[in-house]
Amino acid sequence: MRRRSSSAGLLGALMTLAGFGHITLGGLPVMVQNANADDNGKAARAPSMPMARDPAVAVAEEYEAARRKGTREAFELFIARHGDDPLAEQARAELKRLSR
């Protein structure tokens, strides 16, 4: 008896073992397609990035953190980072007060 190789038979066996519904022909795996689709089966839009924080609010929060800490190092660090900000003047005043 002659043995004949059958690539079609091997491919069929692999598809059976892997599960036919896992990969669509020429597309993404079914699970990925389902995850990227909304309830109507349409592709969902990419999630949008949240709005950037207001830099002035972030600086004010950092100043408040330094004030709560109340150490010379905290105020010096704030001044080093935000020396041109109006709150830096308040931090300098706090440093002078700490020196007394």
Rank of each mutant, 00 (worst) to 15 (best):
N36D: 05
A80S: 12
R97Q: 13
R2Y: 04
T71H: 14
Y63M: 03
S7R: 09
G27E: 07
A37D: 09
S99Q: 01
G21I: 08
T71S: 15
T71K: 06
A52T: 02
S48R: 09
L28Q: 07
V57Y: 06
E89Q: 15
R67D: 10
M15S: 11
S99H: 03
D54R: 09
D54Y: 12
M31W: 08
L77E: 10
N36P: 01
P86M: 13
D85I: 11
A74D: 02
D84A: 14
E64R: 15
G27S: 03
A46Y: 00
K42V: 10
I23D: 02
A88K: 13
L25N: 12
E89L: 14
H82W: 13
S99R: 05
A18Y: 15
A13P: 02
D39Y: 12
G27H: 04
M31V: 06
Q90C: 01
P47Y: 04
A60H: 14
A93E: 00
L25T: 11
A8W: 02
L11G: 07
A37V: 00
L11E: 04
D85C: 13
F78Q: 14
E89D: 15
F75K: 04
R97D: 03
G26D: 01
L77M: 06
R4N: 05
L87E: 07
K42P: 11
A37F: 09
G19R: 04
F75G: 11
T71G: 10
A13L: 15
G12W: 07
K69D: 15
T71I: 09
D85A: 15
E62R: 05
L77Y: 02
F75H: 06
E73C: 00
A8E: 05
P47I: 03
K96R: 04
F75Q: 09
N34H: 07
L77H: 06
A8N: 02
A13N: 13
R4I: 13
E61Q: 06
S48G: 10
R3S: 10
R68Y: 08
L87D: 05
A13G: 11
H82E: 15
R53A: 15
A66N: 02
G26C: 01
H82A: 14
R4E: 10
L28E: 13
Y63Q: 01
K96I: 01
D39A: 15
A18D: 07
V32F: 11
A66F: 03
A37L: 00
E89W: 08
V32K: 08
A37K: 07
G70N: 03
G83H: 14
L17W: 02
A43P: 06
I23Q: 07
N36F: 07
M15N: 12
K69E: 15
A88H: 04
R3D: 09
E64G: 02
R68H: 13
G21V: 09
A60Q: 11
H22K: 11
R45S: 12
R68P: 00
R68I: 10
P47D: 06
N40I: 07
R72L: 07
I23K: 07
D38I: 03
D85E: 14
H22T: 13
R53C: 05
N34Y: 08
G26Y: 04
